[in-house]
Design a protein around this nucleic acid. Sequence first.
DNA 1: GACAATCGTCGAACCGGTTCGCAGATCTGA
DNA 2: TCAGATCTGCGAACCGGTTCGACGATTGTC
Lengths: 339, 339
Amino acid sequence: MVTIGDVARAAGVSRSTASYALSGKRAISAEVRQRVNDAVLRLGYTPNAGARALATSQTMVIGLLAQFLEDEFAPAMLEYMLGVSDTARELGYDTLLVTDSDGAKALRRITDSRMVDGLVLLNVAQDDVRLPVLRAAPQPGALVGLPGDCSGLDVFDLDFEEAGRMMVDHMHRLGHRELILVSQPEHVVQRGGAYVWRLQDAALQQARLRGVTLHAVYGESRQPAVGRSMNALLDAYPSATGLLLNNEAAAAALPTVLHDRGLTVPHDLSVIGRYSDEFARVFSLPYSSIESAPDRLGRMAVRQLVRRIESEAGRAEPYVVRFVAPELVDRQSTAAPRT
Amino acid sequence: MVTIGDVARAAGVSRSTASYALSGKRAISAEVRQRVNDAVLRLGYTPNAGARALATSQTMVIGLLAQFLEDEFAPAMLEYMLGVSDTARELGYDTLLVTDSDGAKALRRITDSRMVDGLVLLNVAQDDVRLPVLRAAPQPGALVGLPGDCSGLDVFDLDFEEAGRMMVDHMHRLGHRELILVSQPEHVVQRGGAYVWRLQDAALQQARLRGVTLHAVYGESRQPAVGRSMNALLDAYPSATGLLLNNEAAAAALPTVLHDRGLTVPHDLSVIGRYSDEFARVFSLPYSSIESAPDRLGRMAVRQLVRRIESEAGRAEPYVVRFVAPELVDRQSTAAPRT
DNA sequence: GACAATCGTCGAACCGGTTCGCAGATCTGA
DNA sequence: TCAGATCTGCGAACCGGTTCGACGATTGTC
């Protein structure tokens, strides 16, 4: 293994001089700098990450805590992960992926041992057990997902309230007066998936405001149960003319269900979902949807995190809670209700 | 930050004694060991990962190189990643996730800086540019996916040849005499996705052997192209009675296509895919399939990698190339052809 | 009872970087 | 011409662990 000592010797200077020549933190004559750089190339020198971390107490690694929970839709999580990883790399950081089922314990391990300079938490719940650990850690943290208590942390999430209102308003404008909203399974809500009722409550309120009937139900999380329950739902509310989906599994199952019932979209039924464009492509879903922008959220979280890591001023800045405004991607799956 | 020096002082011993008490690498009196352990708990001591890495030249981190290529099915990759990450954690290692588009460069960065003790490469191509870098690295590496040259590396993959033969034989036994095989897009093959032609060639050969007509075609990678091409295919070979799918996007698109054509499985058409059980669940695919076992492959790769990392003997052991035997998961989507 | 082996602990060196203080050489201006 | 400022480079200390060699105290053996 080639060390900075080897480089220094090859260049005929001291270790400290070699270090300064490479970091540029002190003035070094052009000639010496050249000799050092030559030696680096000739010997193929790369600084040892552990040694550098020890000396600078900076690892240039951020921790990514992803949790794959029962009833959660795993492929959706991947998009957040890639957003985080790619953005981190652009900013010079590597990503330590943590998928332990016991997130709090894993988080403590990572932070206490100083393996990372900062943390991004995905899939944050209303009362997330990881948050106390994160607040107590010396490293800054950024969340994707809105918890009940945001203090001491930067938080990024889709504006689910606005998403709920948009769905209802869009349908109302087209003339719909009776809608069904399929949310994630109740299990997810009980576990603290706050985004579910954030969207649902806002949708219900907006429906009242507009004089629209809204049947809000919890869906299932996987086949074949989700298909059956969608069928039951359409049977239960035969006069509903619009379907709102805040449930990936339900969206994925819908094409088959509608086909079986001989219904076409938007002629017989108008549909709006809430998922990413990438998701729509992969699952070939032909429904208009509120873009959930996982890549953007991951990117925003990392950007803010790195700002906080790198500037001593950043540490003191007030914490932000930032909502991404929902956008409706029109895939022609809504129209005026059949008279 | 609390260091081992703080622990030693609190326990009234030297730093080295504290270290030995914790590692157990030398005999320490029960009483001193107790005092040290108490101090650790009281102060909340956790070893600094960077310092330990520097001293032991072991980071307890493995690198996971995943590449998300155009036309590749991202959700499938996630299963491999989780298999690797979870297994690594069980064995005491953390996972550094690398998703750089320039895999070779990223690999060099990770290995040269000694950030990881070993590497797992996913999605390995026939002539993968990352392999020369990996072979030159001081850390051992394990591959998921079979390259042209396996020297100096441990390799794990599904036995795609056997998978191709199984598909054909299964259909042949049921009485089918004309089949269609839909592979990944040609683009994937040209990029070095060897598994595509490994399965295809074996299937073609077995078909010849059994006297079965096999139409082998490259599919598309995404909607709506893949749906259209599947339709065109069924038009082109109207007398084919069985469909073999080595293409996730095609499998995901098939239910809608068949529904539109009014075909039911297995009455009008027999279908076998090649994807994981998890994939089948998420996409609610009702077709029998060759289980591609991504979690198992990830697990095997990490196990072997850690063995090589941890035993000096392991380093010298002969390298292995291990194929997972394909298993057919019966989902009742095949039957005798309609007469 | 003398001597060797074993046990338990300590001090010091080392891993490979970074950074602070210092000093010799060169430059500046009065 | 000389004091003071500037420019370059060096040596040493430090980051927080691990590990080797040494040494006094205890135990075992003949």
